[in-house]
Amino acid sequence: MTKDEMTAKIAEGRGFIAALDQSGGSTPKALRAYGVNDDEWDGEEAMYGKIHDMRSRIISAPSFNGDRVIGAILFERTMDGAVDGKPTPTALIDKGVVPFIKIDKGLEDEANGVQLMKPMPTLDALLTRASGLGVFGTKERSVINSANPEGIAAVVAQQFEIGAQVTAHGMMPMLEPEYSINASDRAEGEVLLRDEILKHLDALPENQQVMLKLSIPAVAGTYDALVRHPKVLKVVALSGGFNRTDACAELAKNEGMIASFSRALLQELRAGQSDAEFDTVLDEAITAIHRASTEKTAA
């Protein structure tokens, strides 16, 4: 796929984006959920080897293809690895799946109800390497825990600042200001978040776009103005701790939003499954998430 073909595929949104980017502290938890216990690996390299094996198995599965999975977000080590003897981004592109890379390095301590992204001093080098491997875009996550206008403004400003750095490398930034689904003031805060994002979108140059990865809103339709905005290539939704059934039900109420799920995609996959069992379970998850992304219901 050319860059223009990747852009068109994401814009059309006839599927969803798989989030295969667990890193650092979340990796042991992901491995345990997959059925790989802590005593089955020793040291960081072995741990990352186990998670790469899992991701390789997913990407290689027959049901994981560009007909329904239109994109995949990779962890840096996954991007630098190989699947079926090919660089991981190439393996994805050959299956019709647009590759993205997670670029954030974790979160700062909470201040003003939010957690900003930690500094990324090596970001330009990472973007240069990723672009050279054919990666289309990036994903960068910060977290909002309460409806604090000052904090939300800071999160959005940082997201767009990093987005501009990504754009300068010819890549598509996927901005992810995640609003915690456990926040008691989420409905109020998501309106503040939407309006702050709109200010920054309106200020972008005419020839620039971003993607947005947002929590499924507490009130369906809250992000409709973002979905329709000409500076937004696509709005995708994170599952944010919902199980797959609930995440799909809530996502289906929001026109124009497609999924970018991690746990909700992987929750029933196990290392001990045969390849046939593994692909059957994966296919069921892909079917449900694809349907929620493309077949909408009344709120």
Rank of each mutant, 00 (worst) to 15 (best):
M1H: 10
K3D: 13
T7Y: 11
I10K: 14
E12R: 12
G15H: 12
G15S: 13
F16P: 15
I17G: 15
L20V: 01
Q22F: 13
T27Y: 08
K29T: 08
L31Q: 10
N37R: 12
W41M: 08
E45V: 00
E45G: 08
M47D: 05
Y48P: 13
H52I: 01
M54P: 15
S56Y: 00
I59T: 13
S60H: 09
A61E: 06
P62N: 02
G66Q: 03
R68N: 07
R68Y: 04
E76G: 12
E76W: 04
M79V: 10
G85K: 11
P87K: 06
P89E: 00
P89A: 00
P89M: 00
P89H: 00
T90L: 06
T90W: 01
D94C: 08
P99N: 07
D104E: 08
E108G: 14
E108M: 14
D109W: 00
Q115F: 00
L116K: 14
P119W: 03
M120Q: 10
L123D: 06
A125N: 05
L127D: 06
T128N: 13
T138S: 15
V143E: 14
E150I: 07
G151E: 04
I152C: 03
V156L: 05
A157N: 10
A157T: 07
E161C: 06
E161S: 12
I162N: 15
A164G: 15
P173A: 05
P173Y: 01
S180P: 13
I181S: 15
G189E: 09
E190K: 04
V191C: 12
H200Y: 06
L201H: 08
L204Q: 09
E206Q: 05
Q208P: 08
M211K: 14
M211L: 11
L212Y: 04
L212T: 02
K213P: 15
T222D: 07
Y223T: 02
P230C: 01
K231G: 09
L238N: 14
G240R: 05
A247T: 02
N254H: 09
I258H: 03
R263Y: 01
L265M: 12
L269P: 15
R270I: 00
Q273R: 06
D275Q: 11
A276Q: 05
F278E: 08
E284H: 04
A285C: 09
I286R: 06
H290K: 11
A298D: 13
A299C: 07
